[in-house]
């Protein structure tokens, strides 16, 4: 019963978030602010993680391919496909669920307990549309950009490990990156990332928006946002992969 109550409340919040806002210019301004918070401020973490993961996948793949009959450029193929198919979308989304999800839940949670959301409501402003919608728009627009960035930086990380670590000749790595390339993988990853953005922002917003109590409950909502977003991202990954790659 409690589960059904939350499902119902979640969809009611979404309906309010997507209802006509008081002023479109205010939503636009908020969206620009959120793009900075949700997107631009996540650049550095995505770059650092993708760079190292790209380099490590290259080293590990080389370490595990012992058969001399297999060409070395297959390492490039493996790195590319690992990044494009899973890492840059799902793994980056899980990292962003931790960073962005907890930030959204705690921000809205604090606004709830300090009555800032009530203040919006009594002014006659649809607080869900003003606070939640811009976060969702910003994430849906910007998570796929972060995914693309992760693909580029991850592949560059693999290349750097070839150049600096002498793992395989860089020319063979580049050959592998280009070998049997399927552009469809990119649109597949970007589509998944847009769904993950929706899951993370809407769920975290729901948990933050409905906080009752004080700082302790805000902390709990923030933790729940990360855990539940991560689980739903993994579930969505399975469903979307089954649907899109069938």
């Amino acid at each position: 019963m409690r589960f059904l109550f939350h499902i119902g409340s979640y969809f009611l919040l979404m309906r309010r978030a997507f209802s006509r806002p008081e002023k479109f210019s205010a939503i636009y301004r908020q969206t620009m602010r959120e793009i900075e918070k949700v997107g631009i401020n996540s650049f550095s973490i995505v770059v650092i993680i993708s760079l190292f993961v790209g380099a490590v996948i290259t080293i590990q793949t080389n370490f595990n391919i012992e058969n001399p009959l297999l060409p070395k450029y297959l390492i490039g193929v493996t790195v590319r496909d690992s990044l494009l198919l899973e890492f840059s979308s799902t793994m980056v989304a899980l990292i962003l669920a931790g960073k962005v999800g907890s930030s959204i839940a705690s921000e809205l949670g604090m606004m709830r307990v300090t009555e800032q959301i009530d203040a919006l409501e009594v002014m006659g402003i649809n607080s869900a549309s003003y606070l939640v919608l811009p976060k969702m728009i910003a994430a849906v627009l910007f998570f796929p950009i972060l995914c693309l960035l992760s693909m580029i930086v991850g592949i560059a990380g693999g290349y750097l490990s070839c150049v600096l670590g002498d793992v395989i000749p860089p020319a063979q790595y580049i050959q592998g990156i280009q070998y049997a390339f399927q552009p469809y993988y990119i649109s597949y990853a970007l589509t998944k990332m847009a769904f993950y953005a929706l899951i993370t922002t809407s769920l975290s917003s729901y948990l933050g928006y409905h906080v009752k109590g004080g700082a302790l409950e805000v902390g709990k909502a923030s933790t729940k946002a990360v855990v539940q977003s991560s689980v739903l991202i993994l579930l969505a990954n399975l469903v979307l992969t089954r649907i899109i790659l069938q």
């Binding site: 606004m111 300090t114 009555e115 800032q116 009530d118 203040a119």
Partner: peptide
């Protein structure tokens, strides 16, 4: 509001 509820 009791705590002023200004937007941070």
């Amino acid at each position: 509001f009791q705590g002023a509820a200004l937007f941070d």
